[in-house]
Design a binder for these strands. Structure first.
Lengths: 120, 120
DNA sequence: CCGACACTTGAACGATTGTTCATATGTTCA
DNA sequence: TGAACATATGAACAATCGTTCAAGTGTCGG
């Protein structure tokens, strides 16, 4: 196979995103694909929080929380601010936080996207 | 730690999404977090395509393509239609395809979200 | 200074993931 | 019917991921 026969229209070459854009996009989605990190980001929607509190809110250990925040920080999804011995995190990337809102809104008001989960 | 001291406002309990919604949302993002699957979905934006063509467009092997499509099918992100010996896939989930568009648009017109990649 | 605190970090480990290879199913054409 | 084709599937394997555990850094109170 891998032939030139087709069914649909020919895709527009050069209009599709670059490999790099694709990789970057995949990375961002990857960041959002872990329930722990998602809970962290959700907690941050209601305002900045320190690590201990984020841990409590997300159900992760302090260490796991710190690791996760480090990742999110590296991808500029969150920002840190230091006050005394605390590290206070907040959402940094508006695009991502909009994504979050949109995705959660969809998930909340319909069972839409389900795999082999219940309600089949 | 895990104490009750805080900096930001108290998060509104009961307003945050359920564990299930979070898990579902994470699942969907996970589906979008692989460059191969992303390329598949991007190829499908320009219309329905058969497996061989999708493989060629995405750079995946036929087998990998089939496996990936199976996953996407299970999550109702794509739909199949059979014509003769071909399986013709198309985007099924409008939410996901909107997501895709939005995410790619962001990635395309700015370097925004980068981790340790260039342009630091 | 010392101990408690808040957070960070690195190594290790089990689990999950995406790929490949080989084989299977089903279709078309001669 | 048999060969070529298009896709699907299962097992196996390396790579990646998220967690835990055990330190480590820096800060505050006494």
């Amino acid at each position: 196979m891998n032939n030139r026969s087709s069914v649909g229209p020919v895709p527009r070459p050069g209009v599709d995103p670059s490999d790099r854009d694709i990789a970057d996009t995949a990375d961002v989605f990857g960041l959002l694909s872990d329930p722990g990190r998602l809970r962290l980001l959700i907690a941050l929607r209601s305002g900045e929080q320190n690590v201990g509190r984020l841990a409590a809110l997300s159900g992760l250990s302090d260490s796991a929380t710190s690791h996760a925040l480090r990742l999110l920080r590296a991808h500029r999804v969150v920002d840190v601010r230091r006050v005394g011995r605390m590290a206070i995190y907040r959402l940094a990337d508006l695009h991502v936080s909009e994504f979050l809102d949109t995705a959660l809104a969809h998930a909340e008001h319909t069972e839409l996207i389900h795999p082999e989960r219940g309600r089949g």
